[in-house]
Write a protein that binds this DNA or RNA. Sequence first.
DNA 1: AAAAGCTCCAACCGCCCATAT
DNA 2: CATATGGGCGGTTGGAGCTTT
Length: 325
Amino acid sequence: MGRPPCCNKANVKRGPWTPEEDAKILAYVASHGIGNWTLVPQKAGLNRCGKSCRLRWTNYLRPDLKHDNFTPEEEECILELHRTIGSRWSLIAKRLPGRTDNDVKNYWNTKLKKKLMKMGIDPLTHKPFSQIVTEYGMISGFPCTGNKNALLHTSLARAEPYLLIEELSRAKEVNKQMIEKFHSRDHDPFLRNHQWNSMAQFQVVNQENGSSTSSESSSSFVSPMTYSCKRSQIQIAPSSPSEFSEYILGDPFSSMDTDQMSECRTPGLLSSNNDSVARPKLALLENEKDTELPAAAESFVDGILAHDNQMRLGFPNILDEYYDY
DNA sequence: AAAAGCTCCAACCGCCCATAT
DNA sequence: CATATGGGCGGTTGGAGCTTT
């Protein structure tokens, strides 16, 4: 049943390619062109998997590849496209002649991501950390004030995202303690409900098993104003700065259904609801329509723009208040 | 000089969808 | 129709080379 396997996975060579192996692929492609990669190892006399041969050709041997450093123009292009469509490396690479998706991905991970963080910009959302902190205060219902706020801004000014995360973690811990203190006392029901209203956004119902549980930031209580979402939608505590913004931006969506949440979390989407941001993006895309924008990319981008409009109609207050630059 | 830590990137992994059998 | 592979993609890793202590 099914196709025969392309190679014996256990017996094929793996690891770095030798100049001899490269020469065999180059010779084969020169005489036969690119076709069925599963036949290449056999016909070229290589003890490699066809998939491995394809990757070696695509990422390294192709004659049209550039092997020099990225130019500032290319860098700018990557930043703009990443802000617009996120980590769609293959689509981004198609806009950069001579670059592969692997090249772009590596350049992003080793250079651009760090560069943005040093500038105090979250590489995931392309938003300044200062803005994210402000949003965090508004979203959590416990705005940062006084010394705590000063500490946060010091971290921002010094472009120390890890310090910033520690500060926010501490702030979260204080919030948690306040909640626990509150919960342990016998309060007036009205006041208690009033307090819970501001906490409700953290609540999560485990719909898979029918029991009620909570997100990690508020592990020991259940609000009377619980908003429902599936366990798979719970935002796990961040372990790295790249996940951090996703975590703190997650809260406002806790009452959305699965589709809405995934749409809202599309990288770049959050930043696109302000005209001043959306306009350059549209201009870029309009220019591309005249060139050779791949059909898949066009429909994807159209999809994003359609979702932008849909979101704006559905959640005008949230978008206008929180996601404008 | 040597050890430890860091950076970079080629190569691999695993997933998804299309397609062959 | 069921099943297995091909091809494409994004995420991750291993190790060579470089820098710092």
